[in-house]
Simulated scan of single mutants.
Amino acid sequence: MEEKEILNQILKELKSVNQRLDKLEAGQGDLKDNQANIEKKFDSVVEQTADLKEFKTETNTKLDTVVEKIGAIEAVTKENLYDIAKLKLIK
């Protein structure tokens, strides 16, 4: 093989390597972009989870208050029923 042929062969192989390297770099850029998108979505999920946790806590607090009020209403209603029954007996 002549020197010129050998050099041409080496140049072809270098071009091939460069093309593959360019593809790898482009792919790496795509991966970085995708990773950034995933991180943004994850941050959004974390924020929404925090909001939902806060909503759950507020809802449970309000529900506890309602349950307490219902318990108080039941106690008053119970007393009223006894008083009504006593009044009916007095008649």
Rank of each mutant, 00 (worst) to 15 (best):
L14A: 08
E68I: 01
L7P: 01
K40D: 14
E3I: 10
I6E: 05
T57S: 08
N37R: 15
E2R: 10
E13V: 02
K40L: 06
D51F: 06
K53E: 12
D51M: 13
N37D: 15
E3T: 08
M1E: 10
E54Q: 12
E39L: 05
V66D: 03
E68Q: 10
K32D: 09
D22S: 13
K4R: 13
K78E: 15
V46H: 01
K86W: 01
D64L: 01
G27V: 01
K15M: 06
N34L: 12
N80C: 03
A36H: 09
T59D: 04
N80T: 06
F42H: 13
A26I: 14
T59V: 12
E5S: 10
S16Q: 07
E5H: 02
K88V: 03
K32L: 09
E2T: 15
A75T: 07
K56P: 00
Q9R: 15
K86N: 09
I73K: 14
A72D: 12
K91N: 05
K12H: 13
Y82G: 06
L89G: 03
L11E: 14
D64E: 10
K91D: 02
I73T: 13
D51T: 11
Q48M: 07
Q9G: 03
V45G: 01
A26N: 13
N18E: 15
E13A: 09
V67D: 04
A75G: 00
L52C: 01
L52V: 00
N80H: 11
N8L: 13
Y82S: 12
L52S: 02
D33I: 12
L31A: 07
G71F: 02
K91P: 00
A72C: 02
E74T: 03
L87H: 07
D64V: 02
K62D: 03
I90D: 11
K12D: 07
D22L: 10
I90V: 12
L11W: 10
D43A: 09
L7R: 09
G27E: 07
E25Q: 06
Q48E: 14
L81P: 00
G29Y: 01
S16E: 14
L11P: 00
K86S: 05
K41H: 11
I38A: 12
A26S: 13
D64P: 00
E47P: 00
E47W: 04
G27H: 02
I70K: 05
L24C: 06
G27I: 02
I38C: 08
N34T: 08
A75E: 07
N60A: 04
K4N: 09
T59I: 07
L87R: 12
D30T: 08
E25V: 06
L89E: 14
I84S: 03
N18W: 04
N8E: 15
I90K: 10
T59Q: 14
Y82N: 12
I10V: 08
N18A: 10
T77Y: 12
I70Y: 04
N8D: 14
K78W: 05
E68K: 09
K69E: 03
I84K: 06
K41F: 06
V17L: 14
A26W: 04
D22R: 05
E39R: 05
K86I: 12
K40C: 02
L24Q: 07
R20M: 07
E74K: 03
E54C: 00
Q9V: 05
D51R: 13
L31F: 05
T77A: 14
S44T: 15
D33R: 10
